[in-house]
Amino acid sequence: MALAGGGGVLLGAFGAHALRGRLDAAAMEWWHTAVEYQLWHALALALAVHAGRGRAGRIAEVAFAIGIVLFSGSLYALALGAPRWCGAITPLGGIGFVVGWIALGRSLSLSERS
């Protein structure tokens, strides 16, 4: 969770300073989207770790982590010139995010009943 958040900050700064002027506008947009989703889901991962309970909480944690790696990772790769087929990985990360949110909601609703 801390690695996801701290890494997002570092990658955002890297994109804003080291990559500006080196990447075209589309690549910079991919980079920005990757950072934004990484940071939001680092927060979601932190919530899942601290508030999630039981199996649903663990599923949320894993799904958010996988989502960050696949979604943001594939966008970072595309921005840096990876082959276009890497774009096929991005939706898998998005599915991870959706699964994470559903599992987190389930986990939180179960903990309210306890």
Rank of each mutant, 00 (worst) to 15 (best):
R58E: 13
G96E: 10
E61F: 15
A4F: 05
H41P: 01
F64Q: 11
F14K: 10
G100I: 12
G87I: 04
L92T: 07
A26R: 13
G12P: 08
A46K: 04
P91Q: 08
A4M: 09
P83M: 03
Y37K: 01
I68Q: 10
C86T: 15
E112T: 05
G105F: 11
S72M: 09
W40F: 09
H32F: 09
L10V: 07
L10S: 12
A34N: 00
P91H: 03
P91M: 03
L110R: 11
G67F: 09
A63Y: 12
L39T: 01
R22C: 13
L45F: 12
F97L: 04
G94N: 09
P83C: 01
A56T: 10
L45G: 07
A65L: 15
F14D: 11
A65S: 15
V9W: 01
A16H: 12
W30I: 01
E29K: 14
G12R: 05
G100M: 07
S74M: 02
T33W: 09
G5W: 04
G8W: 05
A46L: 08
L80S: 04
W85Y: 03
I66T: 15
R113N: 10
A60P: 09
A18C: 10
G21H: 04
W31I: 06
A56K: 00
L78A: 10
A26S: 07
P83D: 12
A46Y: 02
V99Y: 13
V69K: 07
G93W: 04
I59G: 09
G81S: 02
V62K: 15
V9F: 02
M28S: 03
S107A: 12
W85M: 02
T33P: 11
G105W: 12
V69P: 08
A25L: 10
L39Q: 10
L104K: 06
L110C: 06
L10N: 05
G15K: 08
C86R: 13
A13N: 14
F71M: 08
W85E: 11
A79I: 04
L47T: 13
R20H: 07
G57F: 05
I102N: 10
L45Y: 06
L11M: 14
G6F: 00
A63Q: 13
G21Q: 05
G21P: 00
A44R: 02
H41C: 01
R55S: 15
A77W: 08
G21F: 03
V62Q: 15
S74W: 02
L45D: 00
L3M: 10
G21I: 01
H17Y: 06
Y76A: 08
G52C: 10
